[in-house]
């Protein structure tokens, strides 16, 4: 069962997460009495990488317009910095005493801290990306809400001109997102809802056209046509709301995986 909810996050964190777990187990079981190696060089490399990461992260926070990202990201950066300091301290302690138990503990804590901090960073970014897709979905929902006040062909043409690029964007982004997800059920739900939206959109436009034509002829059936149009717009809205709901899911239901 996957632990990370996107393939990108999984590919970055899974290998290092496994290594950390393995080493923690080794340390717990070992107590081998062997001296620890000099880790100064690799720890220094990690510290340098963290300095760069923090620099990039801070500049991203400053330039971002996403208030939630601005709010969540600093804590993740602090976590990574603190973890790097633990690794540095451990390395210094091991230089003095290669058998130091507190140094080993600091190493494990530092490694875990880096893992947790980088994981939080990636999640902050991922959530921000999801919010962008949701904004696009909400734009489509806003257009759908307008469908029932369209009464002329000119307005319908404008409606289609406005809706089409948004729908294309939503379709592309949701499709891309569904391919990124590790959770099979979420992936399938997104694909199914997106397919429905794509199938329903030309039918909705057609129903709007029929309503306008009937309205022009002053026929009584216009009520029925309006009902049909509203039903289709409602169906599309429901599918989009479901897409928004699933986009925000990051937890796993083990039963679904079983």
């Amino acid at each position: 069962m996957p632990v990370f909810h996107t393939k990108t996050i999984e590919s970055i964190l899974e290998p290092v997460a496994q290594q950390v777990s393995r080493l923690v187990i080794l340390h717990e079981e070992a107590e081998d009495g062997n001296a620890m190696p000099d880790l100064e060089k690799p720890v220094l490399a990690v510290s340098r990488a963290v300095v760069n990461l923090v620099k990039v992260g801070r500049s991203t926070i400053e330039s971002s317009e996403d208030s939630l990202l601005k709010q969540d990201m600093p804590a993740a950066l602090l976590r990574v910095e603190a973890a790097a300091r633990l690794l540095e301290e451990a390395s210094s302690m091991l230089k003095v005493d290669p058998y130091s138990q507190p140094a080993r503990k600091k190493l494990i804590e530092g490694a875990r801290g880096i893992l947790q901090g980088t994981s939080s960073l990636l999640l902050c970014f991922d959530e921000s990306e999801v919010r962008k897709i949701i904004r696009e979905c909400k734009t489509v929902l806003d257009y759908l809400a307008v469908a029932e006040v369209i009464e002329t062909m000119e307005d319908l043409i404008q409606f289609v001109k406005d809706l089409s690029p948004c729908l294309t964007k939503v379709s592309r982004e949701v499709d891309h997102r569904s391919q990124e997800l590790t959770h099979q059920v979420h992936r399938e739900t997104l694909t199914r809802c997106l397919d429905s939206v794509k199938t329903l959109s030309p039918i909705l436009i057609c129903s709007m056209k029929i309503f306008i034509q009937i309205l022009r002829q002053h026929c009584r059936e216009s009520d029925e046509a309006a009902e049909n149009r509203n039903y289709l717009a409602g169906r599309m809205s429901d599918e989009l709301h479901e897409i928004i709901r699933v986009l925000q899911l990051t937890t796993y239901d083990e039963d679904e995986w079983d």
């Binding site: 990108t8 290594q19 980088t118 960073l121």
Partner: peptide, 28 residues
């Protein structure tokens, strides 16, 4: 354990670089 820690720190270094790349890519 000796090899393990060196390998892990190398992996951690790589992970941090990958995270940095992700941030830079999405930011651009």
């Amino acid at each position: 354990l000796r090899v393990g820690w060196e390998q892990l720190l190398t992996s951690i270094n790589r992970t941090i670089n990958e995270v940095e790349n992700q941030i830079l890519t999405r930011d651009s």
